[in-house]
Design a protein around this nucleic acid. Structure first.
Lengths: 198, 198
DNA sequence: GAAAAAAACGACCGGTCGTACTCTTTCCGC
DNA sequence: GCGGAAAGAGTACGACCGGTCGTTTTTTTC
């Protein structure tokens, strides 16, 4: 890996943390450069525009998420075990001290929902992929016989994601000490209702 | 109502819409003044600082929500009818064309979760009140005999709120045409599991 | 209707933003 | 180890930011 690529990765890593805290718009080139110990112009040489930096940050974060959460969960056997592993890894990822600003995607979702442009497009594509992945995992669980055959897998994915959103809210904004217990109870309830007919 | 109070209300109304779209930080005094057809300094005379404007905007929005959603729902008889009315009014409020930028509280939740200061404090207090109100409504539903006695009302409130968050995400970011059907299904599932033992 | 008070104005402050240049240093294949 | 390429520094820019100022206009009060 060349020096430039190294630097670019270093920038994106920092950019992720800064953007998760201050938002993609609040991410300033000057502040980012200072944190990295380099000049604003030196940093800027790696990206054509701030918008491109935002897109690259989102893509880099998505790649990390896939690598650290999805791939690890896919080591578990398909069906309910994998689904549970996925959920557990996801929660762990959100609790990770390496992501002190919380989940960038959730922050960006609220920030970009009224905007236009490539950053929003990238985010939407990422989130749709995520929900599709969840729905697929649910479908495999149905096929394994752990969930009822009549399950609406897209609805399951939607509601599993709802649990993630609520956990983020309870933990990061409200600092609710029971947040983790709540999200586990919510997920268990979701799994239970998908496991039994009606 | 004096002229000043009228103007202040007009400002807060616009500020709400602008902040829901661009965030509380993205709300700029200049842009707000231009939209209102007044000078920046004339606008600023009503508030000691931008931070105070943010707090006032949040408080004003909370008052509107209480008036338009909570009070209307409380016209329904206590118990399940009121809970359903509350949820319906809430969804209607989020769909309201008067709030084109989506829910300010959800946007602010993601924006302020890592910050400090009175704006965050105000938001946290508002959200806690909201969850407490939901939990109380659930408790009344238990007392009316519509929900099982063993129901964890705080957990119910948490999950009802999760549905709201997921709806906002699906509708505003993903533009999912099935968003409304999903949130209704999710809420029905929640009500069903609170209605039957186990 | 005049005096007092409130409201709104326009100009301006220092600072930061994203971005565009040029110039210097560092890297790396030959 | 040299020379071109890549990486980064330095500087400057125009625009906009939140905020302050003294002044002017409008509203309220007596």
């Amino acid at each position: 890996m060349s020096k430039g690529e190294q630097t670019r990765d270093r920038i994106l890593d920092r950019a992720y943390r800064l953007a998760a805290r201050d938002g993609l718009e609040g991410l300033s080139l000057g502040a980012l450069a200072t944190e990295l110990g380099m000049s604003k112009s030196g940093l800027f040489a790696h990206f054509a525009s701030k918008e491109e930096l935002q897109v690259a940050t989102l893509e880099s974060a998505a790649a990390h998420f896939t690598h650290e959460v999805v791939k690890k969960a896919f080591a578990a056997p398909r069906g309910l075990p994998r689904l549970k592993a996925l959920f557990k890894a996801w929660i762990a990822w959100m609790n990770d001290a390496g992501h002190p600003g919380g989940c960038l995607f959730i922050a960006a979702s609220a920030e970009l929902d009224d905007k236009k442009g490539p950053a929003r497009d990238t985010l939407v594509a990422t989130e749709k992929d995520l929900l599709a992945m969840l729905a697929k995992a649910a479908r495999l669980t149905v096929e394994e016989g752990h969930f009822v055959k009549t399950l609406d897998c897209d609805q399951f994915a939607y509601e599993a994601h709802a649990q993630i959103l609520a956990y983020h809210h309870a933990k990061r904004l409200l600092h609710d000490p029971k947040a983790e217990a709540r999200v586990k109870a919510g997920f268990d309830r979701l799994v239970a209702s998908a496991s039994h007919p009606q």
